[in-house]
């Protein structure tokens, strides 16, 4: 079953001579439960692509369909709600709310949606990621690896259709990167999550089921599931 699909995605910054084609007709598909990594050099358009996939930014043209819903047909408010229900994010700089403790951060998207967290499910995630003892801590008291694990827990907690990870290991040293990523992979298997991760690190990318390469805003390899 296809959980994520893009069709002829275009994003152009600027006009006329100075126009930059950040995305130049990207079409790709992701199966449910798949772990896909998107690689490319900086400026290749991979971050822009991820922002489009997550509905954070609107494309110039083209479509993004997540779990059967075409994202950009939604109004801002609806899009935000769709996003917090269907898409989990993991960012390079973690993006934890500095004024909330670890547990509050993890259940925040669920609360924003007006739901009470599935206690057993959240506990299982916390256990798998080894965060039991850190629940009352504030984010700035945690190491980078720990913060990223909290971010992963937050992304998983709302049982999204898909998790988008933007250079999740970009701020971590090699050892921690490996740890975090394998945890990422384990939890996604355990909780049957689809993951799309962008990275410029080939080694990290190899951990994925499939690698999509992007150059100058166009997919050069791996766009359609084999």
């Amino acid at each position: 079953m296809i959980i994520l699909e893009t069709k002829d995605l275009m994003k152009i910054y600027g006009k006329g001579d100075t126009a930059v084609h950040a995305l130049d007709g990207v079409s790709m598909k992701v199966e449910n439960g798949e772990f896909v990594s998107i690689v490319g050099t900086s400026g290749s358009g991979k971050s822009t692509l991820l922002h489009m996939l997550g509905g954070l930014d609107r494309p110039t043209s083209g479509r993004v369909i997540v779990d059967g819903q075409e994202l950009f047909k939604l109004k801002d408010e609806e899009l935000t709600i769709f996003r917090r229900r269907k898409i989990g994010f993991v960012f390079q700089n973690y993006n934890l709310v500095p004024t909330l403790n670890v547990y509050e951060n993890i259940v925040l998207p669920i609360g924003l949606d007006g739901n009470t967290p599935d206690k057993a499910y959240v506990d299982a995630i916390i256990h798998t990621l080894g965060l039991e003892r850190k629940l009352q801590n504030m984010p700035n008291n945690l190491s980078g690896g720990q913060q990223q694990r909290v971010a992963i827990a937050r992304a998983l907690a709302s049982k999204p259709a898909i998790i988008l990870a933007d250079e999740p290991t970009g701020n971590l040293d090699t050892k921690t990167s490996q740890d975090v990523l394998s945890l990422f992979k384990v939890t996604s298997r355990q909780f049957k999550q689809t993951i799309v991760m962008i990275t410029h690190d080939e080694e990290i990318a190899q951990l994925a089921d499939r690698i999509v390469r992007i150059e100058d805003g166009q997919i050069v390899d791996g766009g359609i599931h084999a």
């Binding site: 997550g54 408010e77 935000t80 994010f89 709310v97 500095p98 925040l108 998207p109």
Partner: peptide
């Protein structure tokens, strides 16, 4: 801060 809580899913109304 506002951008951050927005990426997590806080709506403009919220």
């Amino acid at each position: 801060y506002y951008g951050l809580i927005k990426t997590i899913g806080t709506t403009p109304k919220q």
